[in-house]
Design a protein around this nucleic acid. Structure first.
Ligand SMILES: [Mn+2]
Ligand SMILES: [Mn+2]
Ligand SMILES: [Zn+2]
Ligand SMILES: [Zn+2]
Lengths: 141, 141
DNA sequence: CACTTTACTGCAATTTTTCGCAATAACGTT
DNA sequence: AACGTTATTGCGAAAAATTGCAGTAAAGTG
């Protein structure tokens, strides 16, 4: 399971929080499938294993996991999508014409981060951006 | 009024849409105050002039104005904030420790856009990003 | 100005998300 | 292993946001 490498159990407990079955179930649900997952899909997966888990709990748990940087969120074309946080952050390019999605590594943004740090002293630490624009193909037209 | 410079009336009509009093009221409401405005504040301003304007209409209108690039949105610390679109896009740096907000020009990001275009062919056209990280002061500690 | 088309609005109903609170259970301590 | 503290859950209710639809009115035409 992907998130095991992050040692989420200790990460949660070391901050004074508790590792509950609900939190493990939600974490697993976000992991399954690997990519972006909607709330409904997460709820479906969680309740397939434990039907009693409450919808409110899933909302609160996702917010919690996001706060601990175990899960990242993205708003893409009106939809709110969740994804397990990986060791290295990544970002998304969304073509506003054809909808194509391209994934890029955080290193693509470091030139801008450097400029920002130079001029403002601010050190950017973005972990899941969504940048819109036009993909190569659509741009050619 | 700031948005008049954008000639929003023609911009709306030229695409087959209609310029309604409700749309002007919402646009004005987003303009007033200049910066980021919450939905509730927009509703308050609109209904101060025209109490009959429906809440649903305001939601739909904001979405519409966003689609036409007359208004930009941002999700900052859980809040959804609206702002009138200016001639040049700008972005925000939010310190995740002290909450400080720094505004930056789009030119700060062009080095990254260039790299992205070189390697992927994708031309980024982001108009209102929110980047989190640590401000200069918080970083020193 | 009267007329036609159909984009847009207001309203009510749904759906989604948040919230308060009493009951539960995680986990450090004994 | 039993106990105590209190973070977390489930539940019901409230609040926020979305949707379908019938009526309204913007704007082009003559
Ligand atoms: Mn992603
Ligand atoms: Mn702004
Ligand atoms: Zn494209
Ligand atoms: Zn700071």
């Amino acid at each position: 399971m992907t998130h095991h490498t992050l040692d989420y159990a200790n990460r949660i407990r070391q901050q004074g929080y508790r590792l509950t079955p609900q939190r493990e179930l939600v974490l697993d649900a976000v992991c399954e499938g690997g990519g972006h997952t909607s709330f409904d899909e997460i709820q479906r997966r969680v309740q397939a294993r434990a039907p009693a888990v409450n919808r409110s709990t899933i909302y609160r748990t996702l917010e919690f996991l996001e706060k601990l940087n175990l899960v990242v969120v993205a708003h893409i074309e009106g939809r709110t999508l969740y994804e397990i946080a990986h060791a290295r952050p990544h970002h998304h390019l969304i073509c506003s014409r054809c909808g194509a999605e391209i994934e890029i590594d955080e290193t693509m943004l470091t030139p801008a981060y450097d400029r920002i740090a130079e001029r403002t002293g601010f050190v950017v630490h973005a972990d899941h951006l969504v940048l819109s624009g036009l993909c190569g193909e659509c741009n050619a037209k």
